[in-house]
């Protein structure tokens, strides 16, 4: 009998706690597979955020640190500066990276820290129960924007990839999603390349992964992916913004 599929060695046996239809599981898998395929799992040190993926340190089968909310890029900086030969990554959500931790991620990019950041954008605060995030779309209803996000009141959603791509120290920036098998393959390619960017000593690398939150969006998993395609992708266009320093 041939094995046609098995769980990545980059993940532990701990079952994910994620909600049904949440795409964190897929994204974890892609990160884990990339570390294994690049042969760097044993040299990897990950930093988990605060948010839905707060327990990421239980799932990745490598050394992990748990950071305070938004501070993962600073923690990763400390690790990488102490151990420059190790492969250091952060895994962060949109509340963590795009709101409370904007200073940390912008300056990590600005310094050209040789770390890889996986930024999961689902346009909402998931763990705390569906509040408005800086990435929440205009008109999108959340528990703290019950009448829909009002642009006049709280501005438009923040586009992190576009902003980070303007920074010289950021050498790889790409926005992907995981709504279809084809897009999952593209996402994997981007994540792997973001780690290669670090391995080649290029500088800061960020992959933004558009993700769904069926629970807090109040949709079925399938409808949530449709909503992502119809609403998020038009505002957050997929594609590469920077590849090893070359802007697109």
């Amino acid at each position: 009998m041939t094995i046609v599929y098995e769980k990545s060695k980059g993940l532990t046996d701990v079952p994910f706690h994620y909600c049904p239809g949440c795409t964190h599981g897929v994204i974890h898998k892609l990160v884990a597979e990339s570390l294994v395929e690049l042969g760097v799992l044993d040299d990897a040190i990950g930093v988990a955020p605060v948010g839905c993926s707060v327990l990421a340190y239980k799932y990745f089968n490598c050394d992990m640190q748990e950071a305070a909310h938004g501070r993962a890029p600073a923690v990763a900086t400390g690790i990488k500066r102490a151990l420059p030969d190790k492969v250091v990554f952060t895994y962060q959500g949109d509340g963590d990276l795009a709101s409370i931790g904007t200073a940390e991620v912008v300056h990590a990019a600005h310094r050209g820290e040789k770390i890889t950041t996986i930024f999961v954008n689902n346009a909402i605060y998931g763990m705390t129960g569906g509040q408005m995030a800086p990435t929440t779309l205009v008109g999108q209803k959340t528990t703290t924007s019950p009448f829909g996000r009002d642009e006049a009141h709280c501005g438009k959603p923040i586009r992190i990839s576009e902003m980070i791509a303007t920074i010289d120290g950021a050498k790889f920036v790409e926005r992907v999603t995981v709504d279809t098998p084809a897009n999952i393959r593209k996402a994997k390619k981007a994540i792997k390349r973001a780690f290669e960017c670090q391995l080649k000593g290029q500088g800061f690398a960020l992959v933004e992964v558009l993700s769904s939150c069926p629970t807090n969006w109040g949709l079925t998993p399938l409808k949530a992916l449709e909503w992502l395609r119809d609403n998020m992708i038009p505002y957050y266009p997929l594609g590469n913004f920077k590849d090893f320093g070359e802007g697109k």
Binding site: V75, G78, A82, L83
Partner: peptide, 11 residues
Amino acid sequence: NMVYGAGGAGA
């Protein structure tokens, strides 16, 4: 938080 990371890495 950089101190946290570096200290956590044993330095």
